[in-house]
């Protein structure tokens, strides 16, 4: 049996006891929403509010919706409003060289639920095929006038650079620090390394992430990938600890 305690800033909500971990988490989330005074909206109402359901859109409208969503993820308003992708954009504005301000396309195609669902509406196989959803996102980005994704590149940025204010806000939001020194301490996490050759053995791996490093870059090093844009990530693994993914 599972019980979940959800903490958001000063608010905490403890669920009833459930057989499934997922149900405990959902119940804790429901209680937290009630405490926060947020009224959950069911899917049908949400679709009505958003206008057309993505299934009702024409092919062209689906592509436009995907391009619009990609542009939204780069908008300063979106990034500064508790966006779950903030760590990736913080790394983007600290990256040096040609990929400054860019995020790996796979981050957007895997982590943003709205993008995931728009890709599925364009091609239902993209839900299972990570390379296909990446391909759809890149195609949309490369044809979008506001975004910058050079040919043969797996990175997406926006043509107009982030303002200094946004850069500072992103760093402050992520680190809780006022300056851009990224003085957060090093951290490490455990991973399981699964070689593609069955002749090699599965290994436990400890990854150390320095104060100025981003976990995707460290992972790219361990995977022998050129850079973090070459990493594909799975959807979250069912029956595994929260947010576990295969990279």
């Amino acid at each position: 049996n599972f019980q979940c305690c959800l903490k958001i800033d000063e608010i905490s909500a403890t669920s009833d006891v459930f057989i499934r971990k997922k149900d405990a988490e959902q119940h804790a989330a429901k209680l937290a929403l009630e405490k926060l005074g947020i009224q959950p909206v069911d899917d049908a109402t949400a679709s009505k509010q958003e206008g057309k359901n993505s299934r009702d859109l024409t092919e062209e409208e689906k592509w436009q919706a995907l391009k619009d969503r990609l542009c939204t993820t780069f908008s300063e308003k979106f990034l500064l409003s508790n966006c779950p992708l903030v760590a990736h954009f913080t790394a983007a504005v600290q990256r040096k060289g040609v990929n400054y301000g860019k995020v790996p396309a796979a981050v957007l195609s895997a982590y943003d639920n709205k993008i995931v669902s728009l890709c599925k509406s364009i091609n239902k196989n993209s839900g299972k095929d990570l390379a296909l959803s990446l391909q759809l996102v890149l195609r949309a980005a490369k044809s979008c006038s506001l975004l910058d994704s050079p040919s043969d590149s797996l990175w997406i940025g926006k043509k107009e650079p982030f303002s200094e204010e946004t850069k500072e806000e992103l760093i402050k939001k992520f680190t809780g620090k006022e300056n851009d020194a990224m003085e957060i301490e090093s951290c490490s996490f455990q991973a399981v390394y699964i070689p593609c050759s069955s002749e090699k053995s599965v290994e436990s791996l400890t990854m150390r992430i320095g104060p100025q490093e981003h976990f995707m870059d460290v992972m790219a090093y361990h995977l022998g990938a050129g850079d973090s844009s070459h990493i594909l990530m799975s959807r979250t693994l069912k029956k595994a600890p929260l947010e576990s993914r295969l990279y």
């Binding site: 019980q3 305690c5 958001i8 937290a32 947020i38 508790n82 929260l242």
Partner: peptide
């Protein structure tokens, strides 16, 4: 509800699930 929390609060929301 969980997706709403995650969308709104991202990594600020901490789920601590215990086996009871």
């Amino acid at each position: 509800p969980k997706s709403i929390i995650n969308k709104k609060y991202g990594s600020k929301a901490q789920y601590i699930t215990t086996d009871v």
